[in-house]
């Protein structure tokens, strides 16, 4: 059992307009994750600390936050990889509602805007829509997204321009654009050809670095750009 210091960015609009830093000394085991330390604070030190989490195992995407300046899932990052003084902040670029809780609505709006559902024409088949293993592999990487927003809120373009669709929306569009069963590719490409679409990307690679699922986000964005230029998906 060792002690680490969690330096947490606190904010409570009902108490004050200003955010401030608060430090907690937390005992941790060698295999603990950041989420365990946050639980310790909430359960034993200060019950008012607010953050989202659900599955606690890197599946639901609820607990992305800025840890030592980079976006990570609290339930996936190990304390032993973070040093003795760990700074924890809410995701940047989305409105903070309380402590580590951000308003995800602008993020979900961008997600909805790319029509993240299968689009087909004609009669529905009586059985599954079949797809070859190669066709499935084409967009395998982008099916892994858990919508944690770590990528979009790591993007410096998004920090400054909340109208930018952001990496996640493009990842989601990619997942359908390159799906052989889907017929909405042209429509989605047109949506992302917007002034706030893929051309806003400066290939900073922050998104790829932030993604807890290891998705090659920047590559997916480049593939969408290429599909727009060469018109094949």
């Amino acid at each position: 059992m060792t002690l680490v210091t969690l330096k947490i960015r606190r904010y409570d609009p009902e108490l004050s307009e200003d955010a401030f830093w608060q430090s907690f000394e937390v005992p941790v085991e060698s295999g603990d994750r950041l989420l365990d330390a946050l639980h310790h604070v909430k359960w034993y030190l200060d019950g008012s600390l607010t953050f989202r989490r659900s599955c606690a195992h890197g599946v639901c995407g609820s607990d992305a936050m800025r840890v030592n300046g980079v976006n990570r899932l609290a339930c996936k990052v190990l304390i032993k990889d973070l040093g003795d003084e760990i700074t924890v902040e809410p995701l940047k670029g989305l409105p903070t509602m309380k402590d580590l809780l951000v308003d995800m609505e602008p993020f979900f709006d961008a997600f909805r805007a790319v029509k993240p559902f299968l689009m087909t024409s004609g009669n529905a088949p009586t059985r599954e829509r079949l797809q070859s293993a190669e066709d499935r592999a084409r967009f395998d990487d982008t099916t892994k997204c858990i919508m944690c927003a770590a990528c979009t809120t790591a993007c410096p373009i998004f920090w400054n321009d909340d109208q930018y669709f952001g990496p996640q929306a493009i990842v989601m569009a990619h997942r359908f654009i390159f799906d052989s069963r889907d017929e909405g590719a042209e429509e989605r490409l047109e949506i992302l050809n917007d002034k706030e679409g893929v051309w806003r990307c400066r290939t900073t690679f922050n998104c790829t670095d932030a993604c807890p699922r290891g998705i090659e986000v920047t590559k997916a964005i480049q593939e969408v750009k290429r599909a727009l230029i060469f018109h094949h998906t």
């Binding site: 308003d103 961008a110 109208q163 002034k195 679409g197």
Partner: peptide, 24 residues
């Protein structure tokens, strides 16, 4: 709390200016 404008709701221009500028 900073209020963010509802994103991407503006009317879209149908030109591909940004694409051509990127290629240029």
């Amino acid at each position: 709390m900073t209020v963010i404008e509802a994103p991407r709701s503006r009317a879209r221009s149908r030109t591909s200016f940004e694409m051509y500028s990127w290629i240029f």
